[in-house]
Simulated scan of single mutants.
Amino acid sequence: MRVVEVTTYGGPEVLDMVRRPEPAAGERPGRVRVRLHAAGVTITDLRIRAGLYADELSPLKPPFVLGADFAGKLLDPAPSPEGELPVGTRVAGFVPWYTERSGEGTYAEIVQVEPGWLAPIPDDIEFTQAASVPLAAVTAHQGLARLALPSGSTVLVTGASGVVGRFAVQFAAAAGLNVIAVSYPGDESELKVLGAQHCVRRGDGEEILAAVRAVAPDGVDGLFDGALVSETALPAVRNGGAFIALADDRTPVPVRDIRVETVLGRPDAVLLAKLLKQVQARELITRVADVMPLEEASEAHRRAEEGRRPGRIILMI
Rank of each mutant, 00 (worst) to 15 (best):
R202A: 01
N239W: 07
L191T: 14
E188D: 10
P254M: 06
I208G: 07
G203S: 09
T232D: 02
P235A: 10
S230Y: 07
P217W: 12
V253A: 15
V253D: 10
K192C: 02
E231L: 09
D248K: 09
D187Q: 07
E190A: 15
V255M: 09
A227Y: 05
R201S: 08
A214G: 15
L234F: 09
D225A: 06
F243N: 02
L223S: 09
V215G: 05
V200S: 06
E188R: 11
A227V: 15
G240Y: 06
I244K: 11
P254T: 08
G240L: 07
L194S: 04
R213I: 12
R202F: 00
E206H: 08
R256V: 07
S189P: 03
R213V: 12
G203P: 03
N239E: 15
T232P: 00
R250S: 11
N239L: 00
E206T: 15
D187E: 01
R202E: 04
A196D: 08
Q197P: 04
E207P: 08
F224I: 13
R256M: 09
A211C: 02
I244F: 00
R213L: 03
R238C: 04
D225I: 11
L223V: 14
I244L: 10
V193Y: 12
G195Y: 10
A210F: 07
K192M: 11
V229P: 02
K192W: 07
V212F: 00
I208E: 05
